[in-house]
């Protein structure tokens, strides 16, 4: 005897039924890793550069500072690095466009897998407010660390890692060391 059908169920192309909004499981990590590696390889072959993320936010910050106080921005070589000589718009930048793509790609994948959800990811023993405080503070540390290291997990670990860059591998070890050393102190947030 067939069970009562869910009126909201979606029938896929094989005629199998699945409940509406059913969340698909994440991919096998090795499969996702190969996909990520091939995207990185394509970037090397086509552009002669790897992937990145934090640099796009530096361009954004430099543009913002320059809009508010151009003299202040021009006097700071960190901002100048991202602003260029002033002849071109610093937001017409390769990494800025790549990161806009990351937002789009993440959204597409999440939508196709039924994983779009307005929520706050956290462990069971912390309030959403508390978690957001940690998220802000962690993000700020990440911004400082990534600039000091000349790149983040994308630009240094993945890109420089695949190129066997000495600084990138040293950086990667430091990232894991730092995160494991800190994990105990913020366990309340996750466990």
């Amino acid at each position: 005897m067939h069970a009562a059908t869910d009126p909201l169920a979606i029938v896929d192309h094989e005629g199998k039924e699945r409940p509406a909004g059913k969340i698909q499981p994440y991919w096998n990590p090795y499969l996702a890793g190969i996909g990520l590696g091939l995207v990185l390889l394509a970037s090397f072959v086509i552009m002669g550069r790897g992937l990145g993320a934090s640099g796009a936010f530096s361009s954004l910050v430099a543009t913002g500072v320059n809009a508010i106080n151009p003299a202040h921005a021009r006097a700071n070589s960190f901002y100048v690095d991202y602003l260029g000589d002033g002849t071109s718009n610093p937001l017409m930048d390769w990494l800025v466009f790549e990161v806009i793509g990351v937002f789009a790609g993440g959204f597409i994948s999440g939508a196709l897998a039924g994983r779009l959800k307005a929520t706050t990811e956290k462990g069971p023993h912390i309030s959403p407010r508390g978690r957001l405080g940690y998220a802000f503070f962690g993000g700020a540390l990440m911004g400082i660390g990534a600039k000091l290291a000349r790149g983040c997990t994308s630009g240094q670990a993945l890109t420089g890692g695949a190129m066997l860059n000495l600084g990138s591998w040293t950086f990667m070890l430091a990232v894991f060391a730092g995160a494991y050393a800190m994990a105990y102190f913020v366990r309340r947030q996750w466990q």
Binding site: M142, A146, T170, G178, Y180, M182, W190
Partner: peptide
């Protein structure tokens, strides 16, 4: 920078990408 980034990773839960 890597150590600071590692702290930020486990405190914030993400990296930039």
């Amino acid at each position: 920078g890597g150590l600071i980034l590692g702290f930020g990773f486990v405190i914030g839960g993400y990296c930039p990408g």
